[in-house]
């Protein structure tokens, strides 16, 4: 018999869960392509259309929404990734993982890292596109450097961890995939619209302003905008505090939901 220390077992278990998620991600090429095409459509059709008649605090509108579009990719990709666990349960694949001699916390961490890897790959591709668009003048005013790119990646990594956890919490409680549409209409779109991804936050009516403050994504968009464009509403310090606090709470709730998850 082979004996490894329990800690090493758990780490290998986390790697195992991640390994599967990553393989599946690489095989679903259509998903990667559409996850990059969609945001580019937002930038060039929505951004150019609205941008032709407005510019915001001296910034080109397409440049202004670029950080918001990155946040949107993280939001949709991460939450849906988490909710996908419903499919694992629909067949008996989830049981195969749960009956293995590793803790549910490790399974949860592996899943979160898998979701984060997916989202980060998409973000890196988009950052490279953004860098090129700025360089050739397609989006004037967008100047991404290696330094700001890595900074944005860090902030978005924390957020993808939180949002993958949100998805896994929802997915661990759902019994069938029929709820997918509801999640995107009642959760993701409101969160996206309220995050200030598409408009500045400084001139809003009171009711809307208060709602944006309750939206955790607001702080991610604000932080990414600060890093990439040098302009922000709340300042990087407050943004990071909210982002990291939200992440810790979601990880805690997520591990709890996984412990309690019934089959």
């Amino acid at each position: 018999m082979y004996q490894m220390s329990q800690t090493k077992n758990e780490i290998v278990g986390i790697y195992a869960v991640w390994y599967r998620e990553f393989k599946v991600f690489l095989r679903e090429k259509s998903r990667i392509v559409s996850s990059v095409i969609n945001p580019i459509l937002w930038l060039f059709i929505f951004g150019a259309g609205l941008g032709s008649s407005i510019n915001i605090s001296g910034l080109n509108y397409q440049a202004f929404i670029f950080p918001g579009i990155l946040a949107q990719v993280v939001l949709f990709s991460s939450v849906f990734y988490g909710v996908y666990i419903v499919w694992d349960r629909k067949i008996d694949f989830l049981k195969e993982v749960l009956v293995a001699p590793i803790s549910r916390t490790s399974i949860f961490i592996g899943k979160v890292l898998g979701g984060a890897t997916d989202a980060m790959i998409q973000i890196i591709i988009l950052l490279i596109f953004g860098w090129i668009f700025g360089l050739v003048g397609l989006i004037p005013g967008l100047h991404i450097t290696l330094f700001t790119g890595i900074g944005a990646l860090f902030v978005l990594f924390f957020t993808t961890v939180s949002l993958t956890s949100v998805g896994l919490i929802l997915g661990s409680q759902m019994e069938s995939p029929e709820g997918f549409q509801l999640i995107s209409s009642f959760l993701l779109f409101p969160i996206f619209f309220l995050s200030g991804a598409l408009f500045p936050l400084n001139n809003l009516p009171v009711w809307l302003g208060s709602l944006t403050k309750l939206d955790p994504m607001t702080y991610t968009v604000d932080a990414a905008r600060h890093i990439i464009l040098g302009t922000s509403q709340y300042g990087l310090g407050l943004d990071l505090i909210v982002i990291i606090a939200f992440m810790l709470v979601m990880i805690w709730l997520g591990t709890y939901a996984f412990e309690k998850m019934k089959l």
């Binding site: 082979y2 278990g13 067949i91 008996d92 694949f93 195969e96 293995a100």
Partner: peptide, 25 residues
């Protein structure tokens, strides 16, 4: 298990490798 419990986007080998990792082999 009664229902299919292998991942059909992985190969047979990959499913087995995943299992070996999960069991700390």
């Amino acid at each position: 298990f009664q229902d299919p419990s292998s991942d059909d986007t992985l190969t047979g080998y990959e499913n087995l490798k995943l299992h070996g990792l999960l069991y700390g082999m």
